[in-house]
Design a protein around this nucleic acid. Structure first.
Length: 489
RNA sequence: GCCCUCAUCGUCUAAUGGUUAGGACACCGCUCUUUCAAGGCGGCAAUGGGAGUUCGAUUCUCCCUGGGGGCGCCA
């Protein structure tokens, strides 16, 4: 009855959603969907100094963009809310005081500065840098004296020296830690806010989380959390610590490795599902090493058993390739609408879009589709379509227009084109091909200069296709324009 | 320093106590073509090192090395 799977993604809004976080969210989401369970979003904004509402909002927006929809959490609510930890401070306080009452936790008056110094000294002496327990047994009088000094206490959890604590992890089996290495740790800061280890446990219990799927950078923290579960007599959830995602140089993924935020990839023009598909392959695979999945298929096939144990390096190049693959599958009409914001931003289109312009963008979309990998590239690839005074690439001019035969050739092409009706790619191609035969020029000797005359570039879509999209008048105008330009040089 | 953890092509990964160690990205070549791309075909490229178990180890065990993570009034 109560066996329903409940998992959560619990980001801290101290920055934007990044590759690693998105992958963790994805694995949780996939697991929940595969198991027919619930996926919960909880914002861990307990660090008042570092968390911001802007980041909360952007993390939420990015998750929505990836279409990792949650069943409980911000915007959708749920019966275990609120889902922002900053709105649950009184809950944590209650639970912390419960431990005080049971003598499982105590007030600690040491200041962060003192602790820092002592920690440093212990490190230098080669000792494990853990709390020395000096506030453990303070008498009422001692406490009074410290309070009079103006010290505000934090609440520290008592960790007994004896024994070990084991984490049962779905991926790694049983991992055992010695309690004596853990040290008493803070659960409630002196400002009354909870620490991560504490709020996490309390909320996961209250929100009835059954499985904790998170990065393996949290593995070392897990024994502390288990100790808390035991102190409260909460049922311990099932853990799955998934491998981390690293940068090219094998270190933790960070800004040094270039763009790591999801919003960057969104703005650049990556498709959400391409992103998800790629991320799914980081640490998970099928027996066939299948690369492409539909959403339905991915949910069907995803299991934690097939998640690997070793960390993965984020490869932007493969992501880009995959995005290109997905772009090639989109209907030109749909693709055109995805291009619009980029064209607008670059000023290539403005205001209301006429149905004529729209039609043209669709045609451009189908012409450029096969060579575009990221949506934002459309502005560079297709700028010449939109600008009458497009720029000629110097190299292209050098290579294709600075031949003595070119001006007369272009003049002749212009003459022939004027007679073409209707102006279709087919008619144009016939005309140009027969002209090159007539003049005993190779097709390349004719096509290349014409391409540069029309687009300013040596690369691009099929010459006749792009000319058709431009239209007869514009093609003639550009040839004329090019002739004038050549004269000047 | 201590604790935890991981280890197959450059990268993501598959597989097995006996295989030509498979696929994908990248790279290189060929092909198609007016260019670029896409496509097709082909190529390069890996079980970190050392012991042990075994007829046989990349696979199981141990050690070493290397990587990563943690040891906060950050999460």
């Amino acid at each position: 009855m109560d066996r329903q799977v409940r998992v959560r993604f619990a980001p801290s809004p101290t920055g934007e959603l990044h590759i690693g976080g998105a992958r963790t969210a994805l694995f949780n989401w996939l697991f929940a969907r595969h198991e027919g369970g619930k996926f919960i979003l909880r914002i861990e904004d307990t660090d008042v100094a570092r968390s911001t509402q802007n980041f909360s909002r952007s993390v939420i927006e990015d998750l929505k963009w990836l279409e990792l929809n949650w069943d409980e959490g911000p915007e959708v609510g749920g019966k275990y809310g609120p889902y922002f930890q900053s709105q649950r401070f009184n809950i944590y306080k209650d639970y912390a005081y419960r431990l005080i009452k049971e003598k499982k936790a105590y007030f600690c008056y040491c200041t962060p500065e003192e602790l820092k110094q002592r920690r440093k000294r212990m490190q230098e002496e080669g000792k494990p840098p853990k709390y020395d327990g000096r506030c453990r047994e303070l008498s009422f009088k001692e406490r009074e004296k410290l309070e009079k000094e103006g010290r505000k206490p934090a609440i520290r959890f008592k960790v007994l020296e004896e024994g070990t604590t084991s984490v049962r992890d779905l991926l790694r089996g049983e991992v055992t830690f010695e309690n004596k290495l853990l040290g008493d740790f803070i659960i409630l800061k002196s400002d009354g806010t909870p620490t991560y280890n504490f709020a996490n446990v309390v909320d996961d219990f209250l929100m009835k989380i059954t499985h904790i799927i998170r990065g393996d950078d949290h593995l070392s923290n897990t024994p502390r959390q288990i100790l808390l579960y035991q102190a409260f007599n909460f049922p311990i959830p099932i853990y799955a610590h998934i491998p981390m995602i690293l940068g090219k140089d094998g270190t933790k993924l960070s800004k040094r490795h270039g763009a790591t935020s999801i919003s960057y990839y969104r703005e650049k023009g990556y498709l959400p599902w391409a992103m998800v598909n790629y991320l799914a392959l980081l640490g998970w695979s099928t027996p066939e090493s299948q690369q492409f999945f539909s959403p339905k298929e991915l949910i069907e096939k995803f299991t934690l058993e097939r998640v690997g144990k070793s960390s993965a390096v984020f490869d932007p190049q493969k992501l880009e390739w995959m995005n290109g693959e997905y772009i090639r599958k989109i209907e030109p009409k749909k693709l055109a609408s995805l291009f619009v914001p980029y064209l607008r931003k670059k000023g290539l289109i403005e205001g209301e879009i006429s149905s004529q312009t729209k039609e043209m963008i669709v045609k451009i979309a189908s012409l450029e589709q096969e060579r575009i990998k990221v949506l934002s590239q459309i502005t560079d690839l297709a700028e010449f379509f939109f600008k009458r005074d497009f720029k000629y690439e110097p190299k292209a001019v050098e290579k294709r227009l600075k031949k003595s035969y070119v001006p007369s050739l272009l003049k002749e092409i212009k003459k022939r084109i004027e007679k073409i009706s209707p102006f279709t790619r087919k008619n144009l191609e016939e005309t140009i091909r027969s002209l090159s035969k007539e003049l005993s020029l190779s097709t390349g000797e004719v096509f290349h200069p014409l391409r540069v005359a029309l687009t300013g570039k040596t690369k691009g879509p099929g010459l006749f296709e792009l000319a058709e999209v431009m239209g007869k008048d514009e093609v003639l105008r550009r040839i004329e324009q090019t002739l004038k330009m050549i004269k000047k040089i």
